[in-house]
C-alpha cells in the first residue's frame, strides 16, 4: 500500500485517498464556444503517459481536499504532491513540463 503525502495533512496510507483523473485539465470558461471535437477532447482524451503523470487525488477519508500529484506510472511511486491551483513543479527529466 502506497504512502501518499496530502499537502494539507501529511503522509497517509493510500486507503484514505481516491484517485481523481489527470490534473491540469481546466473546464473551459465558456463551453458553448467549443466545437464538438474540442469538447470531446476536453471530456475524454487524456495523455496516459509512461512515466511522470500529473494527476488529481482527493484525501477523501481525511480532510476531503483535492490536490495534485506527480506519479511515475512505471514504478507507481509518487514524486511530488502539491495543492490544487499550484503549477506543476519542475522535476528533472519531466518530459511533459
Amino acid at each position: 500500500m502506497l504512502i501518499i503525502t496530502c499537502p494539507w495533512c501529511g503522509a497517509r496510507p493510500e486507503l484514505e485517498f481516491r484517485y481523481g483523473g489527470e490534473a491540469h485539465i481546466a473546464r473551459p470558461a465558456d463551453p458553448s464556444t467549443l466545437t464538438d471535437e474540442e469538447w470531446a477532447d476536453f471530456l475524454y482524451n487524456r495523455t496516459n503517459p509512461k512515466g511522470l503523470h500529473a494527476e488529481r487525488w482527493r484525501h477523501v477519508h481525511g480532510c476531503g481536499r483535492f490536490f495534485n500529484a506527480v506519479r511515475d506510472t512505471v514504478s507507481d511511486f509518487f514524486v511530488v504532491t502539491y495543492k490544487a491551483g499550484e503549477t506543476r513543479p519542475d522535476i528533472a527529466g519531466d518530459q511533459a513540463k
Binding site: 481516491r18 481523481g20 481546466a26 473546464r27 488529481r56 482527493r58 477523501v60 476531503g64 481536499r65 483535492f66 490544487a84 491551483g85
Partner: peptide, 13 residues
C-alpha cells in the same frame, strides 16, 4: 457530494 466538491474545489474555488 463528491461530484459537487470536485467542481467547487477545483473548478470554481
Amino acid at each position: 457530494l463528491a461530484h459537487m466538491e470536485d467542481y467547487l474545489q477545483t473548478e470554481w474555488p
